[in-house]
Amino acid sequence: MPPHTDPSSADHGIRLESVVLERGAQRVFDGLSLELRDARIGVIGDNGAGKSSLFRLISGLEQPGEGRVRVHGCDTVADRRQLSQHVGLMFQNPDDQIIFPTVAEELAFSLTARGESRGEARRQARDFLARRGLAAWAERAIGELSQGQRQQVCLLALLISRPATLLLDEPFASLDLLSQARLSAQLAASDQQVLVSTHVLDHVHDFERVLWLAQGRVQADGPGREVCEAYAQDVRRRAEMDLPHA
């Protein structure tokens, strides 16, 4: 399936140019090139396919050995200090991301990192929560929150800082159905570009674009419905091959 194209300017969206990424003796990506401009993009594939590595490259947590990555006009190596203005990454485990003891402090940190004073950041954080009907969360201790609620705090911390692109790495993996539905609704309401890596295909099935990664390569790239169904069929085929024969 051919990748989507967009006539927008070169500074809009994310561009990977012949990227090589090596981790020890393993070559994760070998000349990967992508243009990611669609508003909603899913990334699917088996464990070890390169989904998290792709997000780490885009967010600047890893650097390409060859090639380059540009995010809304910023080179992830040369312009690394500016990247947080353009892209935010939500990790698989919220405990790897949350730093502060209360919800308001965690959200305020996203704003102080962008130059707001501590007092103004806390005021904006409380207002932000109140507008979402979560005013009572402001002084709640992070340790008292459920896994789904901590995941929601991580997303709120990204939303309040307003990066152009949100990267969500397996955000549904440890959530119950109600928490998954709430997270999906939040994503649907956002006007930011959203990239979601997931094994829960239902959540990206209706996305305008889905990438299927396999061993660091793009196996398929196209409308969510088509790519998710192709991947699901491939998984079923491989599972049947593993069954013992009578």
Rank of each mutant, 00 (worst) to 15 (best):
Glu106Trp: 00
Ala125Met: 11
Thr112Arg: 12
Gln97Trp: 03
Val71Cys: 01
Asp96Met: 08
Thr112Glu: 15
Ala136Gly: 15
Ala130Asp: 12
Gly73Gln: 09
Asp95Ala: 07
Glu106Ser: 03
Thr112Met: 13
Thr102Ala: 08
Gly133Thr: 08
Ser110Gln: 10
Arg126Val: 14
Ala125Pro: 11
Ser110Phe: 09
Gly67Arg: 00
Arg70Glu: 15
Asp75Tyr: 07
Gly67Glu: 11
Arg81Asp: 14
Ile98Ser: 04
Arg131Phe: 05
Glu106Pro: 06
Glu116Pro: 05
Ala113Lys: 06
Ala135Phe: 07
Arg122Gln: 15
Ser117Trp: 03
Ile98Asn: 01
Gly67Thr: 05
Arg114Asn: 15
Val77Glu: 13
Gly133Tyr: 06
Ala104Ile: 02
Gln82Trp: 02
Leu129Asp: 08
Phe91Glu: 06
Gln82Phe: 00
Thr76Asn: 05
Arg80Glu: 09
Arg80Thr: 09
Met90Lys: 00
Ala78Lys: 04
Gly133Ala: 10
Gln82Leu: 06
Ser110Trp: 08
Val71Ile: 12
Gly115Lys: 11
Gly133Pro: 02
Leu134His: 03
Pro101Ala: 04
Arg81Gln: 13
Pro94Lys: 01
Val69Ser: 12
Asp75Leu: 04
Gly67Asp: 13
Leu83Gly: 10
Ala125Thr: 12
Asp96Leu: 09
Val87His: 04
Gly133Gln: 07
Leu89Ala: 06
Ser110Leu: 08
Cys74Trp: 09
Arg126Thr: 07
Ala104Met: 04
Pro94Met: 00
Gly115Met: 10
Leu89Trp: 08
Ala136Phe: 06
Ala108Cys: 10
Arg81Ser: 13
Ser110Pro: 03
Asn93Leu: 12
Ala108Gln: 09
Gln82Arg: 14
Leu83Ile: 09
Gln97Tyr: 03
Arg122Trp: 11
Val69Ala: 04
Arg70Asn: 09
Gln82Ile: 02
Val71Lys: 00
Cys74His: 14
Thr112Tyr: 13
Gly115Ile: 04
Asp75His: 03
Gly133Phe: 02
Gly67Trp: 10
Glu105Phe: 01
Gly73Tyr: 06
Glu120Asn: 11
Arg126Ile: 12
Phe109Val: 07
Arg114Met: 15
Leu83Ala: 09
Gln85Ile: 00
Ile98Trp: 01
Glu105Lys: 05
Pro101Trp: 00
Phe109Lys: 02
Ala113Asn: 15
Cys74Glu: 13
Arg70Phe: 05
Arg118Gly: 13
Gly133Glu: 11
Thr112Ala: 13
Asn93Cys: 03
Ala104Val: 07
Gln124Ile: 11
Trp137Gly: 07
Glu106Thr: 01
Gly88Trp: 01
Ala135Ile: 07
Ala113Cys: 15
Gln124Trp: 06
Glu120His: 12
Gln124Cys: 12
Glu105His: 01
Trp137Phe: 13
Phe100Trp: 04
Gln97Phe: 11
Leu111Pro: 15
Cys74Lys: 03
Leu134Trp: 12
Ile98Lys: 01
Arg80Ala: 15
Arg70Lys: 09
Arg70His: 05
Ala113Trp: 03
Ala125Leu: 09
Ala125Cys: 09
Trp137Leu: 06
Arg122Thr: 06
Arg118Glu: 15
